[in-house]
Design a protein around this nucleic acid. Structure first.
Lengths: 109, 109
DNA sequence: TTCCACTACTTAGCGGTACTATGTACTAGT
DNA sequence: ACTAGTACATAGTACCGCTAAGTAGTGGAA
């Protein structure tokens, strides 16, 4: 992964994962493949699992363990109300930053 | 500063400063006030100076010391060709991330 | 049956960046 | 003499993504 992207993902990756969870619960391995399908081809597996531990400890998601047909049991994450609130704030923060940057790019000093 | 914003600025603040420097050189204190005027009201002074040291050491800017009418001498930073190249890459990285997030926000799973 | 690939999760240690807090130094106004 | 504003510097901290390595289960190829 490029260094720029690595740094830029700090703070946004959590929002991306929370956004992925809206509406449809998912488990770690699934989220990793989802991210890769979305273009984040170089996201490290460990990064995702560590992030999931974090958002679980922050109480943003509910977790349920389910058996898998092929491999160890899955940990399925569901966005809860606290998580939705956090996601809302994320979008606000993102919008602010995004607007400033768009302004900067189009020459608005 | 909100924690979300703090994390999200990682990787983008450098790009923002480089963008601010395109066309018009500036010194640290000036850059800090410019950032605050753009809405980044809680950017810490120390953050900016540390960032300037970094981009100077990476060779992205040229530096010139100029006396000030009111206070210690200023260090004026000018974006050089390497800096412009870095800024280009920054915009590419930003565009990629921005597009993915916009897609996520508008329900595109 | 041994080996490999895929699925699925975990964790210790590292590097980079923004923040906190504090300090230095110079000028001008009260 | 004191304060506010200008201007820069830096040691220490926290957070987060990456690297690397591991554990555990299933199924197919050799």
């Amino acid at each position: 992964m490029g260094k720029q992207m690595t740094e830029m993902l700090k703070g946004t990756l959590e929002g991306i994962v929370l956004a992925l969870l809206t509406g449809s619960p998912a488990y770690g391995y699934e989220i990793t493949t989802l991210l890769r399908a979305q273009g984040f081809t170089e996201i490290a597996e460990g990064t995702v699992y560590a992030l999931l531990v974090r958002i679980e400890q922050k109480g943003l998601v509910d977790v349920e363990k389910r058996p898998s047909e092929k491999g160890p049991p899955r940990k399925v994450y569901t966005l809860n109300s606290l998580g939705e609130k956090e996601l809302d704030e994320f979008w606000n923060t993102w919008s602010f930053l995004s607007e400033r940057l768009e302004q900067l790019r189009t020459g608005g000093k």
